[in-house]
């Protein structure tokens, strides 16, 4: 039993690292390098509490980046992930705080709203043939506006929903291993990542995600209903944004309607650093996770070294350009 179990796990693992392996090895090496470098530079960096803070900081961007990865592998782009996250948080606030309904309904409502908005983006892209950049740019603004309208431009607090803040901030793992109080938000990130990786590598939906990004016309000529599958992928990505909405609302114990803009670029940056091709057809969740971690480690490490926040932004930009440049160099070498 153990043998069979092991081979299955190793093959999932090898799939995770197989595709676009070079870029990901590079990203992984960069991550290790950053960790080592910051540890040497500051004794405060390599502390359990600081590592947990980095993971916690990765959770929201990581989940959003996973959503963005799915869409990018189809050859599309989703600019609405940030404001969709906020919209879902606001929906949760309306259901839980304004309507006073029970917690599970709020969670289902937030994820459902996300999936529905994703489905709308997907319909615009697949059926109305609007380029993904434009369709999701429109959705980004629509959702930002709607969040403000629905909330009356004021934050919605979850003080009446006991336990809501524990969704991200509590620690189930900490109750079992008190030495490692890994926040639930991080646990949720890894669960989402594992599920997304499984869907991509093991299910029909995942197969079509790669196939659409590789050669959409060929898939269509093979008799596959490309429109429905593409809409499905956008809807899945939207649902994942709903999870991100719950995470950020829980961390802040409130839905902040003005938040969200700019998160989409951070998510796309993590995807790109992780080696997913913006041309579609190629990419991995593992890479995206590493990409999101690199960004969080950078921000955290530079802060520990007391580098001004403005410079942190500059460094992040340089890292993105370097990551893509390294990928281009590798590609031109292998032909």
């Amino acid at each position: 039993m153990t043998a069979a179990h092991a081979t299955k796990r190793s093959s999932i693992f090898s799939h995770l690292i197989d595709t676009g392996a070079h870029q990901k090895m590079l990203a992984f090496a960069s991550l290790i390098l950053l960790l080592v470098g910051f540890s040497i530079a500051s004794p405060n960096f390599m502390q359990v509490s600081n590592m947990l803070a980095i993971l916690q900081a990765t959770s929201v961007n990581g989940v959003l980046a996973i959503a963005a990865t799915l869409v990018i592998i189809t050859g599309g782009i989703d600019l609405s992930v940030g404001t969709l996250m906020t919209f879902c948080a606001v929906i949760a606030g309306v259901i839980l705080t304004k309507a006073g309904l029970p917690l599970p309904l709020g969670l289902i409502g937030a994820i459902g709203a996300g999936a529905l908005c994703g489905l709308i983006s997907g319909t615009l892209v697949a059926k109305a043939k609007i380029p993904p950049f434009i369709a999701t740019l429109g959705m980004m603004l629509v959702l930002k506006g709607l969040s403000l309208v629905i909330s009356g431009t004021r934050p919605i607090y979850f003080n009446d929903t006991p336990g809501f803040d524990q969704i991200a901030r509590g620690s189930l793992i900490g109750e079992i291993f008190p030495a490692f109080p890994v926040p639930n938000g991080v646990l949720i990130l890894f669960i989402i990542a594992g599920s997304a990786a499984y869907i991509l590598s093991r299910t029909v939906l995942g197969r079509y995600t790669f196939a659409l990004g590789s050669n959409e016309e060929a898939v269509r000529l093979s008799g596959v209903n490309t429109q429905s599958w593409k809409m499905g992928i956008y809807a899945l990505a939207g649902g994942i944004c709903g999870v991100a909405g719950i995470l950020i609302a829980s961390r802040l114990n409130s839905a902040q309607p003005a938040l969200g803009l700019g998160y989409e670029l951070e998510a796309i940056a993590a995807v790109v650093i992780g080696g997913t091709s913006l041309a579609g057809g190629r990419g991995t969740i593992m890479g995206t996770l590493i990409g999101a971690l690199i960004m969080a480690v950078l921000t955290n490490g530079l802060r520990v070294l007391s580098v001004a926040q403005e410079w942190q932004t500059v460094v992040t930009g340089v890292i993105i350009i370097l990551a893509v440049y390294a990928d281009m160099v590798r590609k031109s070498k292998t032909g």
Partner: peptide, 15 residues
């Protein structure tokens, strides 16, 4: 009309 990022088997049985 093949999908270059997929394997031979995956291409043959697409759909």
């Amino acid at each position: 009309s093949l999908m270059n990022d997929l394997t031979a088997a995956q291409n043959i049985f697409i759909g």
